[in-house]
Amino acid sequence: MTKSVMIVGVGGQGSLLASKLLGKLAMLKGLDVKVSEVHGMSQRGGSVVTYVRFGEKVYSPIIAEGEADIIISFEKLEAARYAKFLKPGGKIIVNTQTIDPMPVIIGAAEYPHDVLEQLKAKGVDVCELDALTLANQAGSSKAVNIVLMGKAAKQFDIEYASWISAIEATVAARFIELNKKAFELGYNS
């Protein structure tokens, strides 16, 4: 079965490394894989989304509404924005960090702080995580992405050691230990 994973967040939050890690992992497992992202305008602090799909044979590089097994969100509001992409029985893993979008900054809209509770009330499986605190514990606030991947890892039928191999093959040598630590903290959280 093809696994469909969405990684969502705010431009500049580092979702690229997370998708790279998943891509590498799929390659190591000998699976077919497609990753899709959009550059350009969206990089300037806008909402960003990356699709990762892997399995025996992957056709479409994108994920449509109601198709995602897992949504990994770097920010609360973005989790809610893309919730409709989740399939029945899917899971949202969300960093509890909030980043105000411009309409909120200028007072044209309110940030709905209870948005995850609203989703839970509708029966959505939402798993919250303060990834920033764990990333800092691992040694760098930038490791938020790998902490989240650690948390998400249990949703896949792939053993821990393969994830570690994928991390070793994805990040620069001097950051391997930090990222392994971040992954472990996320995994055990």
């Binding site: 705010v10 431009g11 305008m41 969206s42 990089q43 300037r44 602090g45 806008g46 909402s47 056709y59 479409s60 994108i62 449509a64 509404e65 109601g66 198709e67 995602a68 509001l77 973005e78 809610a80 924005r81 919730a83 409709k84 992409f85 989740l86 399939k87 029945p88 899917g90 979008p101 411009m102 309409p103 909120v104 809209a109 309110e110 940030y111 709905p112 948005v115 609203q118 989703l119 509708k122 029966g123 959505v124």
Partner: peptide, 28 residues
């Protein structure tokens, strides 16, 4: 794939959404 499914009458079901309005996050 959803475009094609809809055109061929294959049912799709979107996931649940929050009740409130989700503010846009335009690039800036």
């Amino acid at each position: 794939q959803q475009t094609i499914k809809k055109a061929f009458g294959i049912e799709t079901e979107a996931g649940a959404t929050a009740e409130c309005e989700i503010p846009n996050r335009p690039p800036m």
